[in-house]
Computed example of a mutant assay.
Amino acid sequence: MTFADVLARAETTEEGRTIRVPETWHQGRTAYGGFSSALALAEAMRIGGDLPPPRSAQMAMMAPLHGEVEVRARVLRSGRNAIWVASEIFGDKGLGFTASFVFMRSVESTVAFDDCASPRGVLAPQDASVLSRERGATFLRHNFDVRFALPPSDERRPEMFWWVRPRDVEKLDPSVALLLTADALPPGVMRLLSPSVPVSTMHWQVNLLTPAPATREGWWLLRTAADYAKEGCSSQRMALWNVDGAPMLTGMQSIALFG
């Protein structure tokens, strides 16, 4: 079931909407983080009305979400140029996910620079090796095409570069589709861990760098890079570019390590 299908089958409640998380969107025992984030954004945009583009988001992933969940949203503040909207997702054990979104109109500014250049040495999508659909998390196998953006290397660095292409997102708002895709990589620190070590995202913050994200042939270049890990916590930086190397999104994430 595509993400657009999930939204189309949502049922309205007194406080929000209920949806059923398909098992094909699972990451372990919970909904994939990008799924929950995109669901929260879609609900924020639904209740917010005629909003400007989303430009920033903070997400807290507090408890597993599966089966039937309810998503709610409310406008926190409407300013001259920006609107803040909060979203929450409830599962069978109560509140499991919260998000705070900032929607902002473009304004005049004397400052303009870009220090988010795409990495060098990246293979083009057509030249990159393919991640087999028999490998990877459940949500990846069923909803995304993945290719390795860098040539194979024996160097163990807590960093990953993937080309990721979501399937069947034509009916989605481009910003919702971008957030749905942006969490597709495993945490960078997993390159240093045994595959049996569980990990879990705690917080995720992103900035959407353009009001109209776009790429060619559906491909996005994703990067995760851990810059700290100690005592069960890891901090990582994240970024996403389109095929032409234009930056679309930056972020950071806190990861819990259970081993």
Score class of each variant (00 low, 15 high):
Asn143Gln: 11
Trp241Cys: 00
Glu170Leu: 10
Ala4Cys: 01
Asp244Gly: 05
Ala86Asp: 14
Pro198Val: 01
Asp154Thr: 10
Arg165Ile: 15
Thr181Cys: 07
Met252Cys: 09
Met45Phe: 11
Gly218Asp: 01
Arg216His: 13
His203Phe: 08
Ser106Ile: 13
Leu131Lys: 14
Arg165Cys: 13
Gly188Met: 08
Leu65Ala: 05
Gly67Cys: 01
Ala57Arg: 14
Trp219Arg: 03
Ser235Gly: 12
Ala73Val: 08
Ala214Tyr: 09
Arg80Lys: 15
Pro64Arg: 01
Met104Glu: 15
Ala73Arg: 09
Val21Gly: 07
Ala182Asp: 09
Asn242Gln: 07
Met1Asn: 04
Met190Gln: 05
His66Asp: 13
Gly259Ser: 08
Val176Arg: 15
Met104Ala: 11
Pro64Cys: 01
Ser254Trp: 03
Ser132Lys: 13
Asp173His: 14
Phe161Arg: 04
Tyr32Ser: 06
Arg141Gln: 09
Glu68Gln: 06
Gln126Cys: 07
Cys233Thr: 15
Asn242Lys: 05
Leu131Pro: 02
Leu150Trp: 00
Thr250Lys: 00
Thr30Asp: 07
Gly96Glu: 02
Pro53Trp: 13
Asp173Gly: 06
Phe90Pro: 13
Ser194Asn: 13
Cys116Leu: 11
Ala8Thr: 01
Gln126Asn: 06
Leu192Arg: 05
Ala57His: 13
Leu76Pro: 02
Ala60Gln: 15
Gly91Glu: 14
Ser200Gln: 05
Gly121Pro: 15
Leu131Ser: 04
Ala8His: 09
Asp127Ile: 02
Ala214Val: 02
His26Ser: 08
Val21Tyr: 12
Leu150Ala: 03
Phe113Trp: 13
Leu76Gln: 08
Val6Met: 05
Arg156Asn: 02
Val75Tyr: 02
Val85Glu: 04
Gly188Cys: 06
Ala117His: 14
Ala239Leu: 01
Asn207Val: 09
Ala86Lys: 15
Gly96Leu: 02
Gly67His: 08
Pro53Ala: 14
Glu11Phe: 04
Ala137Val: 07
Phe101Met: 12
Gly48Glu: 06
His142Phe: 10
Val197Leu: 09
Thr138Ile: 10
Phe103Ile: 10
Val75Gly: 07
Asn207Ser: 12
Leu140Gly: 01
Asp50Cys: 09
Phe3Gly: 01
Gly16Gln: 07
Glu170His: 13
Ser153Gly: 06
Ala82Gln: 10
Phe3Gln: 10
His26Thr: 03
Ala38Ser: 03
Ser200Glu: 08
Glu11Gly: 04
Leu179Pro: 14
Arg29Asn: 13
Arg74Phe: 00
